[in-house]
Amino acid sequence: MVETRVWHYDGQSRSRRMPTIVPGADETQFLLQGDGAEAGPYAFADLVPQGQSHHERAFGLKNRPGWQITFLEFPPSEIAVHLPKLPRYHAWLEHFGPWRIAGVLALLVGLTLLATLKFPPLIARSIPQSVEERMGAKMVASMGAYACSSPAGDAALKALAARLRQGDNVTIRVLHAPMVNAVAFPGHQVVLFDGFIQEAQSPDEIAGVLAHELGHLAHQDGMEALVRHFGIRLLLGGFDRHPSSYANALLNARYSRKAEVGADSYAIGRLQGAGISPGPTAALFTRMAEQDEQPELAGRLLNYLSSHPPSPSRAQRFTQSVQKNFPYRPALDAAQWQALRTMCAKRG
């Protein structure tokens, strides 16, 4: 068998590896060998198609947020025969004829290009709220195996949301994963990874990041990113079949500078309105920027850097927004902060 290498992300670090993919002892499974990759075995049935081009095919893995392998060339038959297939349309071809299908496809391609390149914000804002909510619920549910919950921790999340949103409807969940990340999903859903909570030095840092993600929700940046990435597939309701593909896309999305600045402005306003100092969030961005400039020190924060690139100017904006002599209060009291940090403790 010809050696076949793939690009691989394990969902726990930003490092991109290039292991070799080989069939397992059981033909329903495969292994990843070399370059520090977790060997497995993995089930072919758990792979989730994430798109393809003329020279690449990418797959996620069920219940493994951020996990991905990408074939840089067509895989050998021993592997290809077991890979999940993307939808095929031979029946349409036989029924309507190749020329009609070609014309329709050309029209759809043109409309898709126009929609995804020129009008993503307009399209994102035209999607009904009920559809957004269903999408977000399915995406978050695809990662439900990692959900953490405790009475005190859940109460702390609700208290934090109440201060930042002043009663608006938003659902915040904590997932047990070492990723240092936070993600806003459609339908007023925000996910905080426990790795980020453990990395934070105070509840005010969590509040700043949460407020930033709420800004992405308010501006529908996540929906716009999905429209740009998936185009017409999203509009045709493909999320019903592969919600984890869309969840992984948002986990790996890299927002524009304009979107990040807008989310920062929203976050500063929410923090000020809640009486939470923006200073700790500024310190967080400074810490991230310092680690970004020193790869040997980057460590766990790189998960958040990959989708939320920091800069000294972002930290400066939060620093300048701190009001002298203002009676700021911590985002959570000591007991609430401890409850939030130990939500996933029993999952070990």
Rank of each mutant, 00 (worst) to 15 (best):
L157C: 10
F239V: 14
I79H: 01
G11P: 09
S149F: 01
W7Q: 14
Q33W: 11
D194Y: 02
T342K: 04
I172T: 05
G24L: 06
V190T: 01
N252V: 04
V180E: 08
L61Y: 15
Q316M: 15
D292E: 14
G136H: 02
I123R: 08
P23L: 00
L297S: 13
G299A: 11
M1D: 05
A45T: 09
R347M: 14
S307L: 05
R317S: 11
R125W: 09
Y89V: 15
Q50P: 12
C344P: 00
Q338F: 05
V104R: 14
I79E: 00
D194W: 04
S77A: 11
G195E: 01
V322A: 11
F71R: 00
P295V: 06
T342A: 03
L32N: 00
V131N: 04
P330D: 01
D333K: 01
V48G: 09
W92I: 15
M18Y: 13
E205K: 03
P278F: 06
L271D: 04
L164R: 01
Q166M: 03
W7V: 12
Q220E: 14
Q294L: 04
L217F: 03
F326E: 06
S265A: 14
P121D: 03
G238K: 07
L175T: 06
L61H: 10
L86A: 13
E205T: 06
V104W: 14
L107E: 09
Q320F: 08
S15P: 04
D35C: 08
E205D: 04
Q316G: 11
P76F: 02
G222C: 05
R16S: 10
H95S: 13
Q68L: 06
N248S: 10
A91N: 09
